[in-house]
Amino acid sequence: MELKDSLNLVKERIARAAAKSGRRWSDITLVAVSKTVDSDTVRRAFELGVSDFGENRVQELNKKISLLPEARWHLIGRLQSNKVKDVVGKAVLIHSLDRWSLAEELDRRGQREGVEVPCLLQVNIAGEEQKAGVDPNEVRNFLESMGQLKAVRLHGLMTMAPLSDQGERARPIFKELLEIKEKMVKHRYINVDMRYLSMGMSQDYEVAIEEGANLVRIGSAIFHPD
């Protein structure tokens, strides 16, 4: 399948899923995951209208930023503290804030460089040991602590469901994150807004959107369709 065709198919499915939850295609932010994609293909996707791309590794992120600086680049993989200096001020959104010590390190770097550091709080809804993220019961305390920071801004929540070829299996995970978000928006936390609910990848993004996601990270369905 040609890139244009696979991208159009993904957009159509996003639009249908959004309609089921009373929204439009334009309400959903598509982040095309380009971690295994060469720069020429990424540029073609950009020319086809994709504005946001996601990378797992900081080194690859910076390489592609240098090749396509006009795009919006997201860091979606786990961030080690010693790599903070290489991502602050470059990624438009860090999706993987998964521990308080990382928030503090990002804040120190952001203050040093005089920039805000936009992040999503990663929540480990599924409780998988191999996945990063704060425990659902720790979300409130984390948000309450955000007022201690000066540069980090939290723009929502992110989670990943267990890998499955059946997106429907992920629905309970997505429902739970939505419930957490709805509880949190009832309170005013300093340096926090809940504009993004990031959940859903190639195998389950339609279910995620139906359950309230407004940011999805899609790679293989765009770049490597069956």
Rank of each mutant, 00 (worst) to 15 (best):
K63G: 14
Q59F: 03
L67M: 14
E55R: 01
L61P: 07
R57E: 09
A91C: 13
H95I: 00
V42S: 01
S26G: 12
L48M: 13
D5Q: 12
I14L: 01
W25Y: 15
I28H: 10
V37S: 00
I65A: 09
E12L: 05
G49I: 06
A32W: 05
V10P: 06
T29I: 10
L75H: 00
A91T: 03
S26A: 11
D38M: 00
K85V: 03
A18G: 10
E70P: 01
A17G: 07
S96A: 14
S39W: 04
V10T: 03
E104G: 01
L102M: 15
V84M: 07
I76D: 05
K85W: 10
A19W: 05
G22W: 05
R99K: 15
R109M: 08
D98F: 02
E105M: 11
D5Y: 12
R99V: 11
A45I: 05
S66T: 04
L30K: 05
D107S: 06
D38H: 08
A17M: 07
V88I: 10
V37K: 04
L68D: 08
K11T: 05
Q111R: 14
G110S: 07
S6V: 07
N62I: 06
T29L: 07
S34Q: 00
D98P: 07
V42I: 15
L97P: 00
K11M: 09
E12F: 00
G22A: 15
D107Y: 08
V33R: 05
S96V: 06
D86M: 11
K35R: 04
K90C: 10
L61S: 01
D86Q: 15
L93F: 10
V88N: 03
A18S: 09
A91R: 12
Q111P: 09
N8D: 14
F46C: 00
D98V: 12
